[in-house]
Design a protein around this nucleic acid. Structure first.
Lengths: 233, 233
DNA sequence: TACATTAATATGTAGGTACATATTCTTGTC
DNA sequence: GACAAGAATATGTACCTACATATTAATGTA
């Protein structure tokens, strides 16, 4: 007797989630420790641990060594955004991709970029302005700053043919990434660059990346009118 | 000799990432199987597995049973967005939160909402329009549709005091969530509701949630001018 | 009481074994 | 050669043990 069937960690996760949903444990409450739950569910501690890791990752609970597991007080909608390389995004939609280098020069970082990196003083960086096109229509305009200290080779890359976006992604994978999304009104400059009507609403993505503590790049990508970012999860 | 120190899964992960970065294994290439790598790194297969799970989660590699592990052909910037309950977001910024119910009525879903849920026919749902305020200034306006079949109790909730956002988050956690982000030009209606100047750029978040296959809610949240969504990771 | 030191404890991780599961590959049949 | 059935195999999971690590709780000292 006591036929102990094997429980999958997903079953256990759903059971624990169930306890939270039916208010057995409310926001801010402390859950029993893993070992106790394992005993109760009739599974190994490692299985409870696996389940808990998933719940923690999805923002349902918070775990701290010795502190135990608590139900998150402030529920969040957690979504994973995948921002692909622009070329692939364009090609996936069935358009022909093209890329145009607008300008490229070494300049001192302006305050906005300093803020993104957390600099207190301006630094000389490579500024690259480029346009991504889909079937020859403007798709995304990017204004990018690249650290010359972290990425010295960039000066010897021909950015008219090779695109900075892809070169960096393939050669300087980041370990940390900040992302800022907002809406901006189109200016006269956007009108020419993105064929946007002046005053039209544009979607902006600012992305700053580091490898450990070393700054790699910070870019401001302005999408064409009507652009949408979509995720499923 | 052969002092076999213990390797952490993060070390192993970084080593494997290193092999990808230095082009030992390029995009689309197949990595050695876990056991082989474990032998090579001098650790247990479970440690390699742990490392690989992390790399797969971060979109670096793809894993398939029997198929093995391959380096992802199309690198992505993967970011986790945490969209908190609006009240908490407002309070965290140090403002006083208030909520105002604008309208509430049962209506047939319009095409946009049908598309979000994947309906082919209109359905009667509860439509709730509400305004979130920060220090009495408009913060986010939400136009929400709630399924009467999945959430029948909602009709007996007093949404003038309890806010639909929080009630749902606490009472109907979702298992699936679609998210759509874009920019929109302010209309005359926004001018009154969000104190936006006509023509100003507004940030819009559309969120649709299900519990398994059952639709819960679909909402279109329009933020006040200047709103930014920010993530670190 | 205030503060530093030490003990206690819950989660995190490494290693190992056994088996499950999903594919791919191989082989057999027509 | 086409297709189906079965074998082979890489990843996934469950359970276990032993430590590691981060914090909290308890204790001792001034």
């Amino acid at each position: 007797m006591s036929e102990r069937r094997r429980h999958s960690w997903m079953e256990i996760r759903d059971s624990i989630r169930g306890l939270i949903l039916n208010a057995t444990y409310g926001p801010g409450d402390k859950l029993p420790r893993d070992e106790e739950l394992a005993l109760r569910f009739g599974c190994a501690r490692s299985t409870v641990h696996r389940a808990m890791r998933d719940l923690a990752q999805n923002g349902i609970v918070e775990r701290r060594r010795k502190g135990g597991t608590t139900v998150r007080r402030d529920p969040v909608t957690r979504a994973t955004l995948d921002i692909p390389i622009t070329r692939l995004e364009v090609e996936q939609r069935g358009y022909r991709y093209r890329h145009r280098l607008i300008r490229q020069s070494v300049q001192d970082t302006p305050p906005a970029i300093m803020a993104n990196f957390g600099f207190s003083e301006p630094r000389a960086m490579l500024r690259v302005e480029a346009l991504h096109l889909a079937d020859n229509r403007p798709y995304i305009f990017e204004d990018r700053w690249i650290s010359l200290e972290t990425v010295p080779e960039i000066t010897s890359v021909d950015l008219t043919h090779e695109n900075a976006n892809e070169w960096l992604v393939r050669n300087r994978p980041y370990s940390k990434c900040d992302l800022r999304l907002y809406a901006r009104t189109a200016t006269a400059g956007d009108r020419d660059m993105l064929q946007a009507q002046e005053g039209e609403a544009l979607f902006v993505m600012e992305r700053t990346t580091w490898i450990d503590a070393a700054p790699i790049t910070s870019l401001c990508a302005v999408a064409h009118p009507g652009y949408q970012l979509f995720t499923q999860g």
